[in-house]
Design a protein around this nucleic acid. Structure first.
Lengths: 147, 147
DNA sequence: TTAGATGCAAACCATTTGCATTGGA
DNA sequence: TCCAATGCAAATGGTTTGCATCTAA
């Protein structure tokens, strides 16, 4: 995962610097948990990273399709690591845990069959869509059942 | 539309003041076009409205379900007037024109049948979802065809 | 060697808050 | 009448930019 990001960075003609490596390591460690730029900066500033570098690198990784932003009810400043299949810009529907923030991805896009109908009904040419499910993941369900 | 918003305001125990009336008139005039708080303030400041009042009122109208926020590729600071059926908190899928910003709503939620499958496959309890289609509306299609 | 990347500080944008004043029910 | 709502100015939170310095290729 880490190597994949480093590779993508190189292949796109960007330098693999020490700060970038550290940032990549940190975001990969978040796994499927969303994190904010500010939180990441707090974590990385002791290693000497500046705020600007953190945000610049987050943006770069987004542009390369390695990270994406999440739009949660509490705000729009969360990032998550994109799964490998997303690098090619492929479509991805997500399911997000309201309790712990964990993000899972749907293997199959459930929309593909209805898109033609929607296009016809609305008169729009449908180009893409964003589908986020919000719910509670199995772990959080399990621990809340214990109450 | 305007009256509907005024009524909802009153029924929720808020005062119908001059600034609020002016703001409501202005947002209704936007119809199905998204607008930003800052742009709205620019428009209303000559009428004497302060920035704080504009943003406070936008928030209030959101809380009442009369406005909602749009998450577009270019940012998350756009608002649109919600259609009447949304007042009761009912679910709504949208289709947004990438060119002119116009927003249309889907009458039927195309997801209802697949949600059970998704819940089973992911292990999540699905509580809600956000589905936004992005494309080009019929008007914008027509005018781009002329090129 | 040298353009691309960094850290810092200051700037920026959207939004919120404190507070004294005003105006609608 | 009197508390909710307002306008102003200043504060805030998240992010970006200018610039001199550094460093990976």
């Amino acid at each position: 995962m880490e190597e994949r990001m480093i590779q993508t960075l190189e292949q796109a003609g960007h330098r693999v610097t020490e700060p970038r490596s550290q940032l990549i390591k940190a975001v990969v460690a978040q796994k499927e948990r969303p994190f904010t730029g500010e939180a990441l900066y707090e974590e990385l500033k002791e290693a000497g990273l500046g705020r600007a570098t953190v945000f610049r690198t987050l943006k770069l990784l987004q542009d390369l399709g390695l990270l994406s932003r999440l739009h949660l009810p509490e705000g729009c400043q969360h990032y998550i690591v994109s799964p490998p299949e997303h690098q090619d810009g492929k479509h991805h529907d997500r399911i997000i845990c309201r309790v712990c923030g964990r993000v899972a991805y749907l293997d199959e896009c459930p929309m593909s069959e209805v898109i033609a109908d929607i296009a016809k009904a609305s008169g729009y040419k449908v180009e893409t869509h964003h589908l986020d499910f919000l719910g509670v993941c199995s772990d959080c369900l399990a621990s809340s059942d214990e109450n």
